[in-house]
Design a protein around this nucleic acid. Structure first.
Lengths: 214, 214
DNA sequence: ATCTGTGAAGCACTTCACAGCG
DNA sequence: CGCTGTGAAGTGCTTCACAGAT
């Protein structure tokens, strides 16, 4: 069956909420309650889960531990993923320093930059390599994900190189509409775009209406 | 007329592409060409723009400068927006140091933190204030946008406080499904969620299919 | 009695296809 | 002839509403 991409985008949210519930010692949760926690309708949660199987018990709800396991398996979160960062400027350094990837199984195992000042530098147990050696390095020791934190002008070239090295997903921090071949995943992380669409709803100072979408 | 939210989300992309074209000295562009640049169908671009007016010339295309002006006006990008950052840890510092906001008219004018170590610290011409003074400060001198870069546990409280101070949009970096009253905009910036949905398509190593969505 | 799982209905968004203007 | 603007058709996603399990 072909699953709607929006559904896939919501599953990590469900998983995170379940994870919190589990830590809190919760055994069972209903779609109603989970929906309230996440700002999603109960029907949507049930429908989303129904694409993958029947995980609940009628009259009771879902077993927190079991559903979380299922979601992690479905999403491929029951394993480690290795990533290569390209661009070790201010943004790249922040990404290297960010503590949120590792606990979720995402590890940055290579860092590249073009500036002689940065090549050879040691940050967070990683030695920055010359971007000229990117293909050599990643063809020998492939990674699954590429993180692009380079200036816009060269971002597409870097993305092409990463794809050539077998990367199957890209997290793009550069402000460009990058093109990738079919089958390769790419998501942009762009705070400015997020701001620029929110201003549309803000510019008329209307206190009412303008439904907020988390 | 009620405009589909997805349309609003695409307009900043169009604006950015037009901006690049303008810098490149381009006078006119067709929906076909703009679509190729952005990976969007020409029909979608024309339909999106048609919600707001008739900006093109049949047989020719769109005047780059004029369409860019219109989009900036529509999105409210023809003015400055002031923002307050809450949380000056590693992530908050990276946000303060990020050079991408100011050129687009978004200025961080206040920074708050709870840690005595950070309060009073001067970063990028901003003095970090005590988060206990958040309401006092922002009620006196309101900002339009709040940037939340605090630990998950206190993020909802901070968001509530910001909303109380009249903030109309929130850029949320904390890993929670935050709730805001209707009329308040909120967008999450969460690289981990982006990764966690991409893995779904990666876990079976299928080289074919699995359409990539930029 | 409660809450799931799900066809069917409803709504939202995208694409088609072409009239009409430059 | 080229390209926009747009109703209409098509596709995809969400919500409804209820049968059925516990």
């Amino acid at each position: 069956m072909e699953i709607p991409p929006v559904v896939i985008d919501r599953l990590p949210l469900y998983a995170r909420a379940l994870s919190k519930l589990e830590v809190g010692g919760r055994d069972v949760v209903s779609s109603q309650e989970l929906g309230t926690l996440l700002g999603v309708t109960p029907a949507q949660i049930r429908k989303d889960l129904s694409y993958f199987g029947r995980f609940g018990k009628q009259g009771r709800g879902y077993n927190v531990r079991k559903l979380l396991d299922e979601l992690q398996r479905i999403l491929g979160l029951d394993r480690q993923w290795s990533m290569a960062l390209v661009g070790v400027g201010k943004l790249g350094r922040a990404i290297l320093g960010y503590g949120g990837f590792a606990p979720q199984g995402f590890r940055i195992v290579e860092a590249f930059d073009a500036s002689p000042k940065r090549i050879g530098e040691r940050i967070n147990n990683l030695t920055v390599k010359d971007v000229a050696d990117l293909e050599r390095t990643l063809l020998k020791k492939p990674v699954e994900v590429g993180i692009v934190a380079v200036p816009a002008e060269i971002a597409q070239d870097i993305i092409d190189a990463l794809v050539k090295c077998g990367v199957r997903a890209i997290l793009n921090y550069a402000p460009i509409a990058a093109r990738v071949p079919p089958g390769i995943q790419i998501k942009r992380i762009e705070p400015v775009l997020a701001l620029q669409s929110m201003t549309y709803y803000m510019k008329n100072a209307r206190r009412a209406a303008a439904s907020a979408r988390s």
